[in-house]
Write a protein that binds this DNA or RNA. Structure first.
Lengths: 249, 249
DNA sequence: ACAAAAGTGTTATCGCTACACCCATGT
DNA sequence: ACATGGGTGTAGCGATAACACTTTTGT
């Protein structure tokens, strides 16, 4: 089933290649890769997960976790495989961002890369280095280092998608711990949009949306009045979505 | 520069391939294709541009305009080339949608396809058949035929992106004639979101956004009171954008 | 005269903004 | 006592929704 020559000749015949000016085989010389933009929230800032490359090209340089897709591997599944292999992270959900198909973007040949991104709680997932990646780091999104290949562009595009997404969906739960305070949530949104919100109005807006569950628990050991703890009420959220509710900003 | 073997051995050496369990050559056996979701607005309905395939596989079936990307061709530029070759359409701006990388999505081998979409004014662009495509048609988005490959899924994904986009941007000018009435514009938005809007309120909202230019012209030969004609004031729009104005719904 | 769609004005309500104020905790 | 962030109430403004009404054309 993976013998391309046989497939072309026996199943399709010559009709398929009729309009091409070069042999059909020439088209089948590309590679596919995946690159993962993993964003976390830690210490009041949005962080990006990068690896230090343990292989050429760009040996030693910072890069997104990414690798070539195996010949018989689904592209989406490949992204999960690569992320786990390079950083140990699994169990997150990634969304596709964009695909980068410039001819000379990769030095070893024609490699088209598909971007994926995910938001994770930086406290829960402790990324680990692998033999492949010499090291794994969180870096502040506001001061990115020079990344390998066109990875800086990939990150910028993904971050724009995060902002767009955050405008219409109650994102951010993925970035927060399971139990969080409204203050933490507000700080997160302020980091995403690089603005300040009025405390009273922010709480009213968020609470009125109805997908926060009051855990009836309080912070402890804080040098100020303890804050109430909340969690994301997935059930309530699904119900609201089904009713067609929309979540602006 | 396109000799992959030479590149691997002379420029990179063996370091790159170190961690792979199969020869690096096996990775470079994929093909890339592009598929174009072209949406137009005609007779109160959103229409999709489809071709009747003039080649195998799926000879004779309806499909999106799409084709394989040439070995040394930029993926984005390929989409424009393919659209022009198959339908004669040029001069539009396409955006990337998603990429489809399931292993068995194409019968002749591993073909990963990148989706693009554009909105065009169906009255201006008269699509033409080519030797490749036996015919080109507009079909109503609400009653799509069975398309070749996974093209139905690609269309659905692209249409969702159109809706998301229309929620935050004054889309629709691309879909309307240069001169249009507010009634036409309202009908378009009602088609996109499949709802009804109050006439008075719709006009107030749209006009207050400030990017419509009153052409001081009127409809003629209509069996009712002639409507005022408007056009999109690109200049005003850019100014508003620069000021950070946002355009909700 | 009538149908059909353009176009306008009014009111009541909702949501948001700004801002002022009080509360509970650790040092 | 005070610094720090949590938490609440309200008054005013502006946008929106609902609806009724007038206008201008072709038939």
């Amino acid at each position: 089933m993976n013998n391309r020559k046989e497939t072309i000749e026996s199943v399709i015949g010559h009709q398929f290649t009729g309009h091409y000016k070069i042999p059909i085989e020439k088209f089948f010389q590309c590679a596919i890769s995946v690159d993962c933009v993993i964003l976390g929230y830690h210490e009041q800032a949005i962080k990006l997960l990068v690896i230090e490359r343990g292989a050429n090209p760009h040996l030693g340089q910072m890069a997104l976790p990414g690798d070539l897709v195996y010949p018989n591997e689904d592209v989406r599944l490949s992204a999960y495989r690569v992320l786990k292999d390079l950083t140990g992270i699994e169990g997150v959900t990634m969304e596709q961002t964009k695909t980068y198909g410039e001819v000379d973007r990769h030095p070893i040949g024609r490699v088209v890369t598909v971007g994926f991104y995910a938001l994770i709680n930086a406290d829960i997932y402790e990324p680990l280095a692998s033999s492949w990646a010499d090291n794994v780091y969180w870096v502040d999104i506001r001061s990115l280092p020079d990344l390998a290949f066109d990875h800086n562009k990939i990150v910028v595009d993904a971050f724009k998608m995060l902002q767009e997404s955050a405008r219409n969906h109650p994102i951010g739960f993925e970035l927060l711990p399971n139990k969080f305070t409204l203050g933490e949530m507000q700080a997160l949104y302020e980091a995403i949009f690089n603005t300040k919100y009025d405390k009273a109005n922010f709480r009213k807006r968020i609470l009125s949306m109805g997908f926060l569950k009051d855990l009836k628990e309080m912070q402890t050991d804080v040098p100020h009045r303890p804050a109430r703890l909340f969690s994301f009420d997935m059930e309530a959220y699904e119900t609201l979505l089904a009713e067609g509710t929309t979540f602006g900003l």
